[in-house]
Each structure stands twice: as structure tokens, then as C-alpha cells.
Amino acid sequence: MMNFSYTRAETVAEAIAAVAGDPAARFIAGGTNLVDLMKYDVMKPERLVDITRLPLREIEATDAGGLRIGALVPNSDLAYDARVQRDYPLLASAILAGASAQLRNAATTGGNLLQRTRCYYFYDVATPCNKREPGSGCAAKTGVNRVNAILGTSEACIATHPSDMCVALAALEATVHVEGPNGPRVLPFAEFHRLPGDAPQHDNTLAHGEMVVAVELPAPRFGRNHTYLKLRDRLSYAFALVSVAAALEMDGEGIAEARIALGGVAHKPWRVPDGEAVLKGKPATPDSFGAAADVILAGAKGYGGNDFKIELARRAIVRALAQAAAGEPQVQSDKTVN
């Protein structure tokens, strides 16, 4: 690990000023991803600003009937919060599908949004990677790309965003509260992460020095009609090959509204409103689900090793929608997929 200097911030303003004024500085909170990346020299900050002492650890009710989750709330505390378990079980389920208990204890809400891709070539500093070293090329496109993206890719990058939690937050239409050198702003979740385009070094739309201070959930909806279905190479403690967060507002036997977000397939949680609209007013049948999947996966492209993801994603969408419609969410400890 490269040497770096260390500053412990006492206030949000102080932390922002410290990072904004130094291009080589970074915030650190749980550190579960950043410390790992620093050991591999994938990230080489010269200064770390420790934000763990900032007062961003509360989960508070909002006037709109939702929850405001402080950026430093650990993933495990969020997943097991009684209000989240009761009102946002899709979010709780997605969080518990990710990482391990130890990592969830250390990792924070804001950090989960900011974690970086696990593309093998991003981690391997001996290979080209446009995300790690802009302009160096993409080794994944012609390499071992089983884990890589099938949607929203570019010539420059086929990395995926690794989070499970963010897939649920996308489906739930959370908002992200940010503070920075130019003041606060609030972003819809869909506008937080970005597609790689010709600048894959940018995972999201934050400017240097901007900090996530909270994630806000709108008032709860969807009752029991939700699921987080995660498919991976082993039963636990692995990143998603494909995951689906599905939530349905039912109207008798029919679907009034659908939310569908995919993980493991793109540079950001993948949501296609036109695909969700296909289900409006339709019966909850495999044919309806398949029609939605076709729209959501339109334009999907494999790179050899990940070709299987296109059909896997289609089947996962259909299965997840069936689980959501039946009110039988995927259980994250019993891995039998019903």
C-alpha cells in the first residue's frame, strides 16, 4: 500500500473542504472497498479524510412518510432496522444478499453506493483498464468476462456496478442527498450512477469533494409483492451474475404498477421504465413477465464469457416477477429458488 497522510474530520464542512482542496485526497468511511483497492495499488490516494466521526448515523422518519438514512449507517444496522424490515423488506433483503456479515458490519450506506467494480482487470494493475487508467484500453472485452456487463456498455468499458443494495434503492426510487463545495443537492437514484461512455473512470455523477450525506426512501409501498432474487456462482458471499429487485402494486389479479431493477448486468442498477410500463393493467402471468423482460433486455450484448447472462437475466426477471406477484419473496438464507 502506498503511504498516505491521514486526517480525521470533525464536521461535514471540514471534511468537504479537506477533500475538495486536494485532488489526491479521498474520503474514507467503512473502508471495506477502498482499503482493499489501496493494497492492490488500484487506488492511490495521497491523503485520506476519515469521516467516520461525523454525525451521519441516524435513520430518521421524514415528513413524506419515508426514511432518511444517514450515510454512515452500517449496512447491517440498516438491514435489521425494525422500520426497514417492516416497511422496506425489499431493501433489507437486498442488503442481506450482499457481502458477508463482517463486511456489512463495517460497510456504510454511502460507501455501498460508492463501491467500485469487481471487474478482474480493474483490480489487476498489470493489465489495461480504462476505468483504472483512462486511455489504456479494456482487457475485459476480449478477456475473461463472465462477470461483466451486457447492457449499457461502451467501447471503453464493460464493468458492472457490484452493489445489491443499490439495485433495491433503484427499484424503490430512493434519492441521494449530497453535500459539496458548492452546497447541497438531491439526486434521483437513477441519476447517481452513470454509464461508462468514454469516461469509465467516473462511476457516478459526484464531483470531487462532494459527499453522500444521506439516502432518502419515499413512503413505503408494494406490501408483500416484492423480491430480491440474486443468482451467483456460489450460494452466499459472491457478487451477482444477475440479480433482480422486483416490486409490484397489484390490483386484484392484475398489475397496477411494476418496478424492476437489475444488478450484475450494467455499470449502474439497470431500470427501464418502458419495460415496467408493459406490465401496467396486465395479468400476472409468465407471458406478461416475458414481454416486460424483452423490453428491459433490448439491446443486450454479450462479450463471449458473459453471453449466458442475457438468457439468465430474462429468466431471472420472469421468476422474480412471479415471486413478487405471489407475495413470496426470495428467502436469503434458504437458497431454494421457488
Binding site: I28, V35, D50, S100, Q102, N105
Partner: peptide
């Protein structure tokens, strides 16, 4: 040494974490 095996698990204030991914100063 990358948070993938759990052999370094310790309790910090009673909570289990991977000691390999914790900076001591923090």
C-alpha cells in the same frame, strides 16, 4: 488480506469485522 476469507475476524466494540480491511488509526 482482502476481506474474502474471514480468517482475520475480530470483534470491534463487540461487532465482528475483517481486521485486514480496517486501518488501525480509524
Amino acid at each position: 488480506d482482502q476481506g474474502q476469507c474471514g480468517a482475520c475476524t475480530v470483534l470491534v466494540n463487540g461487532r465482528r469485522v475483517n481486521a485486514c480491511l480496517q486501518l488501525a488509526v480509524m
